[in-house]
Design a protein around this nucleic acid. Structure first.
Length: 647
RNA sequence: GCCGACAUAGCUCAGCGGUAGAGCAACUGAUUCGUAAUCAGUAGGUCCCCAGUUCAAUCCUGGGUGUCGGCACCA
């Protein structure tokens, strides 16, 4: 005798097991029409699921946010049917809902091309219009395997074989077409609606393993209505405009070229931005008792053998030799990481426990031979500079150092316009160094530190470094892709390998723990993210060109030069625009160049010794005497770590 | 690295089996102008690289390289 509790608290009694469809009908025809699926005690179910016992039921209609996932999942099924209709012999594999849409992976000898999208979408619309009901059925395991095997669907058969014994094997049909699926689904294909669009094709390894066959993946997006779809497509277009590769070119910040794939050519403006960021970070690190060092780029193979990199990391290292006959057997490698070098500095002389924690920092230039397909603008490159540091400390100091680090990182991210970031906690991987007891301690210390620092993290199981657990600080780019920037890794292994030790209070020799940590991760990646975050319109203190002094008439040029010199002398980054162009044109050009402040000088200003300041891309302007304008801009351009609180 | 697409003037992009065009930028000249593109003229290209097919290749074929989108890998 199920008693069904509804979200408003009311309870309905039924004298026999009921389905969601029946409950909705009992409540009213409006709901019966609108309900797509339901949540039974918090779990999403098909409307057709019978409920035998007491339960809390909530119906999901198109208006609910949960509807999106259902629409997308169902759209994946509709896509699969359409593709199998149009391309006989194609095998289906998996097709989940994802953020903003869905995809389906197909096994087919011929790849799909975007030119196929029109036909596939048209077929999908027919299937939606037909509105075949989704019907769930259950099949015994062996029978299900045989069923898919006979249809030639060997991937589906493999999926079933690998499902746990306890798992019920469910199939969903939509008319003639059947797929293995856990569900839940909406009532029928018609509920998918028409606000969907196929977006791209891509290769994807079966089960995400590069040793497996490559499948053809079709990505689509799906929304509750056309308005949402249009808004999403518009948002994508807007995001593309923020792409750091596009802005980097438009603002003349950097370029990349084929002879140095994965290495950045920084142009004057881009390098100014880079240096501004570096100067800022250096000040912050100095203030937090980091000691900056500089270590070699090229080191002998023997060194990397001792550190373990030759064995574990050689595939990603650039190797160098010299012509000299006497030296011809010597193999050198460009450093892919700074840590072993920092241990060398630590190992010079005998260290005392009194020196710990020792925070050794380097803006370390590293080279890694990244897979060609991984390169991405300046965010994933082969030559990059880490804002690296290694904290040599005792096990007892791990928590306090972590808290201090997270605190510093949050403050820096805030200063740079990232008040929000995500943290991932990666714990012990399957193959690892160190005993379980050591791992327990390292993970425990890191978790405790997160708790103290008030950091919420998501667990990233088994993704830690082989030497220790790590925190990853993730920022998102304009296109919605996540990038690991900051990191903190606990390492008990390298000090052992490279024989680092200190003299403890009791006179014994002990191993320090190393905390590997970075805030930007790499300058290249962080600058890429920063460019996208601001769409190139940096706050004044970061902008590579802060002010452009522009003349209206040639007559004003002498004063414009004088004003630019005064601004420059005050430490501002200034350009002068004396071109024989109308002021309208100059305004447009400097908006395009994302210059934050335009200082206009006409005949009047030249006579009065004043500047008309306009904050681009705004339209407001204010006229100020030169000295005042300089003072105001200098104040405004003060880096956040140098702002003295008013009071 | 894998799957697919792409590579034409400084930039954004057209185009075609008979060795190329537009807009903007550049340069020259005119104009001296008050806050979202002044006018006119000039110049500019191994059509990514290497082979092959063809009377003829920027275009077709093959192989490279790079870029882009995914996958895999990772800061």
């Amino acid at each position: 005798m199920p008693a069904i509790t509804l979200p408003d608290g009311s309870v309905r009694q039924f004298d026999a097991p009921v389905t969601g469809t029946e409950i909705a009908a009992a409540i009213g025809p409006g709901l019966a029409k609108a309900a797509l699926a339901m949540q039974v005690d918090g779990a999403t179910r098909d409307l057709a699921t019978p409920i035998a016992g007491n339960a809390a039921v909530r119906f999901i209609t198109r208006r609910d946010p949960e509807a999106l996932e259902l629409i997308r999942h169902d759209a994946a099924h509709v896509l699969a049917e359409a593709v199998q209709d149009l391309f006989p012999g194609t095998q289906v594999t998996i097709g989940p809902a994802i953020e903003h849409g869905f995809y389906y992976d197909f096994a087919r000898n011929e790849p799909f091309t975007p030119e196929d999208f029109g036909r596939i979408e048209a077929r999908m619309r027919e299937i939606v219009a037909r509105n075949a009901p989704f019907v769930r059925s259950v099949m015994p395991r062996e029978q299900a395997i045989e069923f898919f095997q006979e249809k030639g669907e060997k991937y589906k058969a493999e999926l079933i074989r690998d499902l746990p014994e306890t798992e019920e094997i469910s199939l969903y049909s939509q008319g003639e077409w059947v797929d293995l699926c856990r569900g839940p689904h909406m009532r029928g294909t018609g509920d998918v609606g028409t606000a969907f669009k196929l977006m791209k094709v891509a290769g994807a390894y079966w089960r995400g393993d590069h040793r497996n066959a490559m499948l053809s993946r079709i990505y689509g997006t799906a929304w509750r209505d056309q308005k949402e779809l249009d808004a999403y497509l518009h948002q994508l277009e807007e995001a593309e405009k923020r792409d750091h590769r596009k802005i980097g070119k438009e603002m003349d910040l950097f370029h990349l070229q084929e002879e140095a794939a994965g290495s950045v050519f920084w142009h004057p403006k881009g390098w100014k931005l880079y240096r501004t960021l570096e100067d800022y970070l250096r000040r912050r690190l100095d203030a937090h008792d980091y000691r900056e060092v500089r270590t070699p780029q090229l080191l002998d193979r023997k060194f990397w053998e001792a550190s373990g990199h030759w064995e574990k990391f050689r595939h990603a290292m650039f190797i160098a030799r010299v012509e000299d006959e006497a030296e011809k057997d010597r193999v050198l490698a460009l450093k892919p990481m700074n840590c072993p070098c920092h241990v060398q500095i630590f190992n010079q002389g005998l260290r005392s426990y009194r020196e710990l924690p020792l925070r050794m920092a380097e803006f370390g230039s590293c080279h890694r031979y990244e897979p060609s397909g991984a390169l991405h603008g300046i965010m994933r490159v082969r030559a990059f500079t880490q804002d690296d540091a290694h904290i040599f400390c005792t096990e007892e100091q791990i928590a306090a150092e972590t808290v201090a680090f997270v605190d510093l990182l949050s403050s820096i991210y805030r200063d740079l316009g990232f008040p929000e970031f995500r943290v991932k906690f990666s714990d012990r991987p399957a193959t690892r160094a160190g005993t379980d007891a050591v791992w327990d301690q390292a993970e425990g210390a890191l978790k405790e530190a997160c708790r103290i620092a008030g950091i919420d993290y998501t667990l990233n199981p088994g993704e830690g470094a082989f030497y220790g657990p790590k925190l990853e600080f993730v920022l998102r780019d304009a296109i919605g892709r996540d990038w690991q920037c900051g990191t903190l890794q606990v390492d008990f292994v390298l000090p052992e390998r490279l024989d680092a030790e200190y003299v403890a209070e009791d006179g014994s020799r002990r191993r320090p723990v190393m905390l590997h940590r970075a805030i930007f991760g790499s300058f290249e990646r962080f600058l890429g993210i920063l460019i996208e975050q601001y769409a190139g319109r940096f706050p004044l203190w970061l902008a590579p060109v802060q002010v452009v002094v522009a003349t209206i008439v040639d007559e004003a040029a002498p004063f414009a030069r004088e004003a630019a010199a005064a601004l420059q002398k005050a430490g501002l980054r200034v350009d002068l625009d004396l071109r024989n162009e109308k002021i309208n044109r100059k305004v447009v050009d400097h908006i395009d160049q994302r210059v934050p402040v335009l200082a206009v000088v006409g005949r009047r200003e030249a006579e009065e010794g004043a500047l008309v300041l306009r904050r681009l891309p705004g339209r407001e302007q204010v006229t100020l005497p030169l000295a005042e304008a300089v003072a105001q801009l200098v104040a405004e351009a003060t880096p956040p770590d140098r702002v003295v609180a008013a009071g």
